[in-house]
Design a binder for these strands. Structure first.
Length: 768
DNA sequence: CACCCTCGAGTTCA
DNA sequence: CTCGAGGGTG
């Protein structure tokens, strides 16, 4: 790129960054039309209708938009084809038959209405050929008398680039067709793409060579195919061949064949396969729109089970006779549609990097972004872990960043789009003080990257986090005690001194305490306090509500009448009831609730089982603690250290005084109860997905009750994996390791009667 | 010294 | 649910 071109691109980027997605889309369409029109004139009529500078400006504008919104870059984008660089590198080739693009739908409803229209136009039910829409580069191959004579990119659909020399090096593409049933002229359309693994290794290679990374497999395929061999040194040439050999082709179209010996699209695929052309293994013929929709939904959930990237599903009417009947619009055939999945990687603005403090005091920077739709949900935040990660990712506040969902769930910032910087970005500086309480942040021990707020006792963020944690499923599992209540109880606007200064007072909470609480109302969008007309913050109570005449619980002389006829809300009464019930939960839950470092549900269970009471654990020495299986020196130290702190012991004492049961009834004391001789003794079981008849917790408890070990991840030590609907990576891991997989019914048998009963049931022949 | 496992954190969904 | 960090165990 020349300097002038760089400037043009950067300037365009600055404007475009402010465009909302819909306007950007419209602008991209407009530019594409202009560019294709200019190209048509140039190649088709040998005439220039615009000067080079204008043409270049359009291209740079379009490139800038596509960098900002990669999802707008269609496969037929002019930036991916002829003229993108200089227009003279590859010879133009005219396709025998125009390569049309497909119309898109973005939802099941849109797809079903397309199918309904097709069936209405056809006047009958039709079959649908469903296939994966591979994220690659479309290619047209021309075979004359069975020999490959040319290969061309799509280009603008009518004229493409001649990439025959490069294509001849691809292993997956035959130079000659097998057999002799093919016509004299065959033009097949296919997709050249990288498998995900090959794409990753290609980028790793590019990185070691100091070359530019490819944004996605399609760009990589395009880049590899459009490499020019002249002027390259031998080493680069070898590397290129190595990469090219990893390209594969799958055929999903055929044109220029007036009289095929088969009557369906799927028949054509079989024919192509018999000629030695590589076709995709992933297609099916559906006999109804609903069946086709089921295929779409299936792969929507299993996009990553396929070795290559897919950005959607292509559905075609299978009956060839109907293709002519239905015809085509100027851009796309009416007998086929592309269902586009939501993009998994998008660009968005990094508005700020903010630091949050968790229940352990760890200060974690996270990215605050312009809300963006990724993989089907709207994301506005993503963790950045610590200041080293921020630095390693190289993001600046104000950058346009690439956002994705790791494992399809957890939002992750991949990095900045450096080309779109305009100089106003600024670097993130890790604050020296806790953003919530102002204490000086410091590493817990020398050499730690993580900074922590040392003010464990009264830092609002930490107290709030701990109270929230107490209510969580892995601890006392108190319904109604979550993030929101925890905040209301520890830092309301009224009263000034919150009911809970630390978690010590949790079981002393009374109805009056809850009734008095007011919190600031925050805007759901911005997170800022909502203001009243006089400029003061709007407040409301989470635990009061207006009394209605119709209330069955209406009492004219209730205890809380003073306040304009308000009564305790349902949430408040439930919280009080649940707190009361929590007082008699199992000992290990209290141990987890105490927030001792390194003591989670597993260590807590081991300790509770051995010692039988909090007092016994408090009294135990470091070595006595470390003698418990699953507890080592570190956890033992962590426990004794914890009990050395006055206000920690105060928590235990006040909970006990409030009636919390901090001992297992009937436990004989240290060294005592251990469950032995259960039917699952010595066996490790992992439960995943939803198992009919069991809750997530219930399944774990059933395994433990039977004397087994309930592990949270699958390893080769795992004996059984009980998998129900919705099972994810654990099931895959079990298959990979050859661990025995059982369903809910078998799981029930296993925990009640043991593994032998399972085998007996299996051999008695329930199959068939 | 290898594993293998648990902990802890952040996030979104039903 | 997944990742990194770091503890426990053979």
């Amino acid at each position: 790129m020349t300097d002038a071109a760089t400037d043009a691109g950067a300037a365009a980027g600055a404007d475009i960054a402010d465009l909302p997605l819909e306007s950007a889309r419209a602008e991209a369409v407009r530019l594409t039309e202009l560019i294709l029109g200019a190209r048509d004139a140039y190649y088709g009529r040998d005439a220039e209708i615009v000067d080079d500078a204008t043409y270049d400006a359009w291209m740079h504008q379009l490139e800038a938009i596509e960098r900002l919104h990669p999802e707008l870059q269609g496969q037929d984008s002019p930036t991916l084809s002829v003229g993108a660089a200089s227009g003279t590198l590859f010879a133009p080739v005219e396709h025998a038959e125009r390569m049309l693009s497909l119309d898109n739908v973005f939802s099941d409803a849109e797809f079903l209405s397309w199918a309904a229209k097709v069936e209405r136009d056809a006047g009958r039910r039709v079959h649908y050929l469903c296939e994966l829409k591979i994220d690659g580069l479309a290619l047209s191959l021309r075979y004359e008398n069975g020999r490959l004579v040319s290969a061309a990119t799509r280009g603008d659909g009518r004229v493409g680039e001649d990439v025959t020399d490069n294509v001849r090096q691809l292993r997956g593409i035959p130079q000659r067709l097998l057999g002799n049933g093919h016509p004299a002229l065959v033009e097949v359309r296919g997709e050249v793409f990288f498998n995900v693994a090959d794409f990753v290794s290609l980028n790793a290679y590019q990185e070691t060579m100091g070359d530019r990374l490819f944004a996605n497999p399609r760009n990589a395929a395009s880049g590899s195919l459009r490499q020019k061999t002249e002027g390259k040194n031998q080493r680069q040439l070898d590397a290129m061949h190595q990469r090219l050999s990893r390209l594969r082709m799958t055929v999903h179209g055929i044109g220029a064949w007036p009289d095929p010996p088969v009557s369906t699209q799927s028949g054509i695929y079989e024919l192509l396969a018999s000629w030695g052309l590589p076709t995709s293994a992933y297609y099916t013929v559906a006999d109804s729109p609903d069946a086709a929709d089921a295929f779409i939904q299936h792969y929507g959930g299993h996009r990553h089970d396929v070795e290559h990237e897919i950005d959607g599903i292509v559905v075609k009417v299978d009956e060839l006779a109907l293709h002519d009947e239905l015809g085509a619009t100027s851009r796309a055939p009416r007998w086929a549609i592309a269902y586009k999945y939501p993009p998994e990687q998008v660009n968005t603005k990094l508005l700020d990097i903010v630091v949050s403090v968790g229940r352990t005091g760890r200060a974690t920077p996270f990215a605050v972004m312009e809300p963006a739709r990724v993989a089907g949900s709207v994301v506005r935040q993503a963790t950045l872990h610590n200041q080293d990660v921020v630095k390693a990712k190289g993001v600046l506040i104000g950058d346009t960043v690439v956002l994705r969902k790791a494992g399809d769930v957890i939002p992750e910032v991949l990095g900045p789009v450096v080309e779109l910087r305009d100089g106003t970005e600024r670097a993130f500086v890790m604050p020296a003080d806790c953003p919530e309480c102002g204490s000086r942040l410091a590493p817990a021990k020398a050499g730690d990257i993580d900074l922590r707020c040392p003010n464990a006792r009264s830092c609002p963020a930490q107290v709030r986090g701990r109270v929230d944690h107490i209510g969580s499923r892995g601890a006392l599992d108190i319904e109604g005690l979550g993030e929101v209540s925890a905040a209301a109880l520890t830092q309301p606007v009224r009263p000034e001194t919150p009911p809970l200064v630390t978690e010590a007072g949790l079981f002393d909470l009374r109805a009056e305490d809850l009734f008095a609480i007011d919190v600031v109302v925050r805007d759901a969008e911005t997170g800022l306090p909502r203001l009243l007309e006089d400029g003061s913050a709007d407040t409301r109570s989470p635990f009061r509500r207006q009394r209605k005449k119709s209330d069955p619980a209406f009492q004219s002389d209730g205890p809380f009448d003073g306040d304009a006829g308000h009564i305790l809300s349902v949430a408040a009464t439930q919280l009080l009831v649940n707190l009361e019930a929590a007082k008699s939960k199992e000992l290990w839950r209290f141990l987890v609730a105490l927030n001792v470092r390194h003591v989670g549900p597993v260590a807590a269970r081991a300790l509770a089982q051995w010692f039988g009471s909090i007092d016994a654990i408090r009294a135990a020495s470091r070595d006595e603690l470390a003698a418990v299986e699953g507890v080592g020196g570190i956890i033992a130290d962590s426990l004794t250290d914890w009990f050395d702190v006055d206000w920690h012991r105060d928590i235990v004492d006040r909970w006990a005084a409030a009636g919390a049961q901090l001992a297992t009834p009937g436990h004989p004391g240290p060294g005592g109860a251990s469950v032995e001789g259960g039917v699952l003794e010595g066996l490790t079981v992992v439960a995943t997905g939803s198992l009919e008849g069991y809750s997530r917790e219930g399944a774990q408890q059933a395994i433990l009750d039977a004397g087994g070990k309930a592990a949270s991840s699958v390893s080769k030590k795992t004996d059984f994996v009980a998998a129900g609907p919705g099972a994810g990576s654990k099931l895959a891991k079990a298959e990979e390791l050859g661990v025995r997989i059982i369903d809910a019914a078998q799981f029930h048998l296993l925990v009640t009667r043991g593994p032998d009963a399972l085998d007996a049931a299996a051999t008695s022949g329930t199959e068939g």
